[in-house]
């Protein structure tokens, strides 16, 4: 039976290799890679929008599986891989300043082609569409969006600072996200059309 926190590896830190613990059989890890590697790669690509970073994070994910896979149950290994991959990706984003490239990635997403020649134009359009979408939000919704996403405050803190029930803060955020996504989807439609031609 795995340890209680066996499925909760210490993320973003190199796993301490204990010589008393036998690492997972490399053939098992290889089989996991064959089974789930491509799914994981697509998942990571969707988050990172960068092929090289995706490869790096995928490698780091399976390296952790080699080191700590013995702590996992066979039935939960796939979920473990996705969880570790997600957290590794987020850690990479923070470490490598991937957030600065977000606009480029957004352009990549809408055009479907990384590094296309019209990337700067698409990037500006994406920035503008996001900015416009934010401007069109009601002030109280925009305030919650800003506090949650930019200032990274929890909804509990936001509710306390704004002196509103936490349900109200959650409702504002949810409404704002729906509107933003609708706007961004609309703005990406012409690009999808043009890219499909």
């Amino acid at each position: 039976m795995p340890s209680p926190d066996g499925d909760k590896p210490a993320l973003n830190e190199p796993a301490a290799i204990n010589p008393d613990i036998t690492p997972l059989d490399p053939s098992v890890v290889a089989a996991l890679y064959v089974q789930h590697g491509e799914e994981l790669r697509r998942f990571l690509l969707g988050i990172l929008r960068d092929a090289q970073l995706t490869a790096d994070v995928l490698q780091a994910t399976f390296a952790k599986m080699v080191e700590r896979g013995h702590e996992t149950q066979e039935t939960t290994r796939k979920a473990w891989l996705f969880r570790v991959a997600y957290h590794e990706a987020m850690a990479y984003r923070r470490r490598e300043g991937v957030g600065d490239k977000v606009l480029r990635r957004f352009a990549w997403h809408t055009s479907g082609v990384a590094g296309s020649s019209d990337e700067p134009l698409l990037r500006l359009e994406s920035v503008q569409s996001v900015r416009d979408a934010l401007e069109e939000l009601p002030p109280e919704q925009r305030q919650v969006v800003r506090m949650r996403i930019y200032e990274e405050k929890t909804f509990a803190v936001i509710a306390k600072e704004l002196k509103i029930p936490i349900g109200t803060a959650l409702g504002r955020m949810r409404s704002a996200l729906q509107k933003l996504k609708a706007k961004l989807t609309d703005s990406s439609k012409p690009d999808e059309k043009s890219s499909s031609q």
Binding site: F106, S126, L134, I149, K181, L184
Partner: peptide
């Protein structure tokens, strides 16, 4: 997974716009 990627993307984009 796609929903999670969209959420991350949206958060990063909004954050970048606010930073700008």
């Amino acid at each position: 997974r796609e929903a999670l990627a969209r959420a991350v993307e949206l958060c990063q984009t909004v954050s970048a716009v606010e930073t700008q």
